[in-house]
Simulated scan of single mutants.
Amino acid sequence: MTIDPRHDLASGGTGLYEFWTDRDVPVYLDDMDLASVEVRPVDRVVVLEFEYTEPQWTPAAAVATPVVVMRFEGVTIREWSHDDGGLGQVEDFEYDGERAFRLAAYAMVLGFGATRLTVTAEGRR
Rank of each mutant, 00 (worst) to 15 (best):
V75C: 08
D31E: 14
D33F: 09
D31H: 11
V39Q: 03
D96S: 13
Y17K: 11
T65H: 06
V75K: 01
S81C: 04
E49Q: 15
A62G: 04
A62H: 03
D96M: 09
D30Q: 13
R78M: 08
W80F: 15
T65D: 06
G97M: 08
P59N: 01
G97I: 06
A60C: 04
E94S: 12
F50L: 15
G15L: 05
L48S: 02
G85H: 08
A35Q: 13
A61M: 13
E79Q: 15
W20T: 07
V45I: 14
R71C: 01
A62K: 01
R44L: 11
D83A: 14
A62M: 04
D83S: 11
A62R: 01
S81I: 05
P55D: 11
L87R: 00
E49F: 03
G86M: 07
V27S: 02
M32V: 10
V67Q: 01
D22T: 08
L16T: 00
F19C: 06
T53L: 12
A60N: 11
E18T: 09
E79R: 15
A35S: 13
R23G: 10
Q89Y: 10
V42C: 05
V67W: 02
W57Y: 07
D30I: 10
V42W: 04
G85W: 05
V42A: 12
M32T: 09
L34H: 04
W80V: 07
P41G: 12
E54C: 04
L87C: 04
G74Y: 02
P66G: 12
L34A: 00
Y95N: 13
D24V: 07
A62V: 04
T65L: 11
Y52R: 08
V75E: 08
R78W: 05
R71W: 00
E18N: 11
T58V: 07
W57S: 03
A62S: 12
P59T: 00
D33H: 08
T53P: 03
V25S: 02
E49R: 15
V25E: 06
W20Y: 15
V42I: 13
P26F: 05
L16G: 01
Y52N: 06
Q89V: 12
E38M: 12
D22S: 14
T58S: 08
D24L: 13
V67I: 12
T53W: 02
E51R: 10
R23N: 13
L87F: 03
T58G: 06
E98A: 14
V46W: 00
V67L: 14
F72H: 10
V37S: 04
E94N: 09
W20V: 07
W80S: 14
V67F: 05
